[in-house]
Simulated assay, not measured.
Amino acid sequence: MNITGNTVFIPGATSGIGLALALELRARGNTVIVGGRRAELLDRIADEHPGIGTVRIDITDAASIASAAKEVLSNHPGLNVLVTMAGVMNIEDWRDPASFLASAESTVTTNVVGPIRLIAAFVEHLQAQPDATIMTVSSGLAFTPLKVTPSYNASKAAIHMLSESLRLQFAGTSVKVVELVPPAVRTALLPGHEDNELAMPLDEFVAETVALLETQPDAKEIQVERVKFLRYGEARGDYDRVVATINASDPHGKQPGGV
């Protein structure tokens, strides 16, 4: 995708990677709209960052997505980039169904069904634009599993394969499909993860991501250097070592790879 001159909607962008990416894209000359469930966070973003648009959206709710899409497209008819950023990550123990089932269902609804509904809500509009991008967000854990987050791993693997499939379907159209593949980044995705010294600092991740978007406008996947340990373990032939390495650390999720 081009790095400037776009109108970008990023749901799930009231904090973490989503907000940091939104601010950097805004600084690069894009019109940016962020979405989230909590009105107070959206109000704060609007106050602290004039020029950033905001809209309330709950991507676990089909009606909320439809309403938000109508509002965004009404106010920003030139929208040409959708970033399906929102996601949740929970530690689960699948040896006890009572402890994981609700978490697994919530994870799949947010991380898989949510992006599917978002794409469905905007895809007709995007196809009418001369140059449009759907950016999905998977994870290094789509390629190497972290044992304590089974549903998250599976949901991101689904997003990877969805991205691959949609890219084939949109070939020859004005719509590009780009997959952002983060490593572990210092955000609040898990409790205490903001201070995880094994994770990549958020500002470094966003700076490298935007640099890759700028220098590789036709890239299918945006991979910062640190995620390649996870992304290519199987291709390198050291998959078992990669799995062992990321699962040998803190049982609460402080591993060197994955989001």
Rank of each mutant, 00 (worst) to 15 (best):
Met1Ser: 07
Asn2Phe: 12
Val8Tyr: 08
Gly12Pro: 04
Ile17Met: 09
Leu19Cys: 06
Ala20Lys: 07
Leu23Asn: 07
Glu24Leu: 06
Arg26Lys: 14
Gly29Ile: 01
Asn30Leu: 05
Leu41Ser: 06
Asp43Asn: 02
Arg44Pro: 03
Ile45Gln: 08
Glu48Tyr: 07
Gly51Asp: 12
Thr60Pro: 14
Thr60Met: 05
Val72Ile: 08
His76Val: 02
Thr84Tyr: 08
Thr84His: 07
Ala86Asn: 01
Ile91Ala: 09
Glu92Pro: 04
Asp96Ser: 06
Ser106Gln: 08
Thr109Lys: 09
Thr110Met: 03
Thr110Val: 01
Val112Tyr: 06
Val113Thr: 03
Arg117Lys: 03
Arg117Met: 00
Ala121Gly: 04
Gln127Met: 12
Ala128Asn: 11
Val137Met: 15
Gly140His: 09
Thr144Ile: 12
Thr144Asn: 11
Val148Ser: 14
Ala154Ile: 06
Ala158Gly: 02
Ala158Asn: 00
Ser163Asp: 08
Ser165Gly: 08
Arg167Leu: 10
Leu168Ser: 00
Ala171Arg: 12
Ser174Ala: 14
Leu180Thr: 09
Leu180Phe: 12
Pro183Asn: 15
Pro183Ile: 13
Ala184Arg: 10
Val185Arg: 02
Leu189Val: 15
Leu190Val: 15
Leu190Arg: 01
Glu194Gln: 12
Asn196Pro: 10
Glu197Thr: 13
Ala199Gln: 09
Pro201Leu: 11
Leu202His: 03
Gln216Trp: 08
Gln216Ala: 12
Pro217Trp: 11
Ala219Ser: 13
Lys220Tyr: 14
Glu221Phe: 14
Glu225Trp: 04
Glu225Gln: 11
Arg226Val: 12
Arg231Asn: 13
Arg231Asp: 15
Arg231Thr: 14
Glu234Thr: 15
Arg241Val: 15
Val242Trp: 00
Asn247Cys: 10
Ser249Met: 13
Asp250Trp: 03
Lys254Ala: 15
Lys254Thr: 15
Gly257Ala: 10
Gly258His: 01
Gly258Ala: 06
Val259Ile: 05
